[in-house]
């Protein structure tokens, strides 16, 4: 059984971001595996733990310079990695990226695709669902509990919504996007790190995927970023002073009622 994990790289969540010509300048920012994708990868590795025939392949559309981050997925236990690096792909358009990922997933003959619920960069939450649509597979998103039944070719997945917990049932193959809490990602072992260097790591061009460049070019994008800016800073607040704790609390309640008018 083959399982694909699709993952992207995003700026480290601690990173300070700067602007150049009204766009975010990522040239000197530390990039990491998208945090939600780590839960997707862990879910795939859990299946591999219980089925020695399962193979986990990591797929990423991105620059070849992501090697370090992708190898970190191999160190955790994934078997192979494919990075699709081609200037002809409009990396900012989730539908274009999905087209390429779907083509690679087809070649793998996988039973499952795991992804993150969203990239913590632009929070689109679109790419994985578009992969499902292009493969004509079902998708369940923001999953916090996943139970496959490979013998029956079915699964159940639970997601948390405003209404309460939602339980989905579906058939395999499927695309599942992970919410934090789905599992607890493992750490890489020294042995894993040593082995990772020898695992298959392919860099594909668009031509290798069989996708036509006209389908994934920048002219296909239906959304255009016109400006990126820093948000206005919040006005500096005020520390409530007072002799006793109770004095401070009373003053707080007063200002919340009278100034902020939020009580």
């Amino acid at each position: 059984m083959n399982i694909a994990v699709i993952t992207k790289i995003v700026p480290d969540t601690e990173a300070r971001l700067t602007l150049a010509s009204e766009r975010v300048d990522l040239s000197s920012v530390e990039m990491v595996i998208n945090p939600f994708d780590e839960y997707g990868l862990e879910e795939a590795l859990k299946i591999k733990d219980s089925d020695e025939n399962a193979k986990v392949c990591v797929l990423m559309v991105g620059p070849e310079s992501v090697r370090k981050q992708v190898v970190s997925c191999l160190a955790l236990g994934a078997d192979e990695a494919v990075v699709i690096d081609d200037e002809a792909i409009d990396g900012g358009n989730p539908l274009a990226v999905a087209e390429v990922l779907a083509a690679e997933v087809k070649k793998l003959d996988s039973t499952l695709v795991f992804a993150g619920k969203q990239g913590v960069d632009y929070d689109w939450g679109l790419t994985a669902i578009a992969v499902a649509q292009k493969l004509n597979w079902p998708h369940v998103g923001v999953v916090k509990e996943f139970t496959p039944d490979f013998a029956a070719g079915t699964f159940t997945a639970v997601t948390e919504a405003d209404e309460g917990d939602l339980t989905f049932t579906g058939s395999l193959p499927a695309v599942i996007t992970a919410e934090k809490g789905l599992n607890t990602p493992r750490y890489a072992s020294l042995k894993g790190i040593m082995k990772a260097k020898k695992k298959p790591f392919a860099v594909h061009k668009l031509a290798d995927t069989g996708v036509d460049a006209t389908a994934v070019g920048a002219d296909q994008a239906r959304l255009e970023e016109v400006q990126a800016a820093h948000p206005p800073a919040r006005e500096p607040g005020r520390i409530i002073e007072g002799e006793e704790v109770l004095d401070r609390v009373c003053e707080l309640v007063r200002v919340l009622r009278e100034e902020a008018k939020v009580l």
Binding site: P11, T13, R16, R222, L223, V226, P231
Partner: peptide
Amino acid sequence: TFVKPLYAGKIIGKFRFKG
């Protein structure tokens, strides 16, 4: 123009639809 926070609110992005 449609506005949304990017990068966890560190950036505000403005977008327009095309086509």
